[in-house]
Design a binder for these strands. Structure first.
Lengths: 244, 244
DNA sequence: CGTTGATTTGAGTAAGATCAAGTCGGGTGG
DNA sequence: CCACCCGACTTGATCTTACTCAAATCAACG
């Protein structure tokens, strides 16, 4: 735990990508925040199958959800950026069917386990936001299935880079034409269902074509339009999202 | 539209896989059901990108959610069985990011567009159920990603068959050691990110090994244990689910 | 029968995996 | 300061899985 940031001073909420809170809701949320948690890059936030009884929202840093097979093969389901919720599934279903691991050092707002139910009882509009978030995450996962199932390696990598670039920009991370990019090639491979070697060669193809470069922990898109074209990735405008 | 079945006589709810309705909720749901819709096998229920303003629940028959790329490649996201909800995403997010198509002739309970919001306002416990359903569907999609991304073709097919068998049994469709299986090999291929030809050969392998047979529109698992083993598929017990 | 959709088979190919080294760069400890 | 370590990235060679193309079979149905 580190010194908690009061929700009234939230650094995320003012960002253009987030909806402003409605009357009374911010105070309600603030009252339920029981602390703040810091997790180091590479460490686990929630373990696969574990029944954690907290809900988190990612305040700063990057993380990812993953699942693995008994023999160790691992699949990353989804990259988490600030504003994303962690642990909602565990609250609703019996246990967590996936793990969560920090990609960078990460700060999490911690909420008590009864948070969800009290939101539903007291603040229906906020509860609807929570469901919105769940539906939105499912949409991301749907997109991932389409990529992994039907795109070629080149298309997959291109689509992932466009996708992450867009989200990073929406999180206010754009700085001098590039965004932070904390994924290693092994992470990309685990996200896209590819081997590390093939991921490497595919990234090189994109780099040589002047489309995208991930060097030095930052992502530069040389030609967004062109990248979209090779990825067969068409724009879906992102409306402002709710935040907890 | 065909003659609607009143919710009080629902054929699904008594099944062991579904939670009983709480006090007052059944009447509430019944009042919001505006009709019943029949869709022929192969016809679309919701089109990709369309902004349908209804919510459905699948009363009888099989369907599937899908997404496609501009050039026509198609990926099935998820198979829908009786009790599944259709169109929740469209209500929450702006438009439908995926299409839904009937696999068999299908009956749908139709609810008005404001259904969701009124549930959240009036019946918080029911709203939580709705979110449960969303989280549950996401879990299925998470599993699918793991399969497509990290399992071999043989493992994928085996895992899908086990999965669908389990769900069909939970829907009360088991009859004489087999369940209905309305998917063509092309559907399986689109679900698993394989080509039709390879799907065919893989199914033959399973058949010859005495593990599973999909002949004649029915699925017979010759050796569930063995199938689980090749699929690296471990049991996740399914608690009773809410129904709308 | 003729048509249509689903399944099956065969042959050739290509995308991507695997195996095995090797490089590069940023720590750490001597 | 330098040796060395370690993780991430890169390269080459080879192998395998799964795709593509093309055609045959099969069954249901009007």
């Amino acid at each position: 735990m580190d010194k908690p940031l009061p929700c009234t001073l939230c650094t995320l909420r003012p960002l253009p990508g987030f909806k402003p809170a409605r009357e009374g809701e911010l105070a309600f949320i603030a009252r339920r925040k029981v602390g703040q948690l810091r997790v180091r890059a590479g460490a686990g936030v929630i373990s696969e199958g574990g029944a954690d009884d907290r809900i988190y929202t990612l305040l700063a840093g990057w993380a990812f959800r993953y699942k693995s097979l008994p023999d160790g093969r691992r699949q990353i389901l989804n990259i988490l950026l600030p504003g994303d919720i962690i642990g909602l599934q565990a609250e609703l279903l019996d246990a967590m069917a996936h793990g969560v691991e920090a990609l960078t050092d990460v700060s999490l707002c911690v909420f008590a386990r009864d948070m969800v139910w009290s939101v539903f009882r007291v603040h229906p509009a906020l509860a609807l936001d929570l469901t919105w978030l769940a539906a939105h995450e499912e949409r991301l996962v749907d997109d991932a299935i389409l990529s992994i199932g039907r795109r070629t390696a080149l298309e997959r990598v291109a689509a992932l880079l466009v996708h992450l670039y867009k989200r990073a920009v929406a999180s206010g991370l754009l700085d001098g034409g590039s965004v932070p990019f904390p994924l290693t090639q092994a992470h990309i491979a685990d996200t896209l269902g590819l081997s590390v070697v093939h991921t490497n060669r595919t990234l090189q193809r994109l780099r040589r074509a002047g489309l995208a470069d991930t060097a030095g922990g930052r992502l530069v898109l040389g030609d967004l339009r062109g990248l979209r074209r090779v990825a067969q990735y068409w724009e879906q405008p992102a409306p402002p999202r709710p935040l907890f």
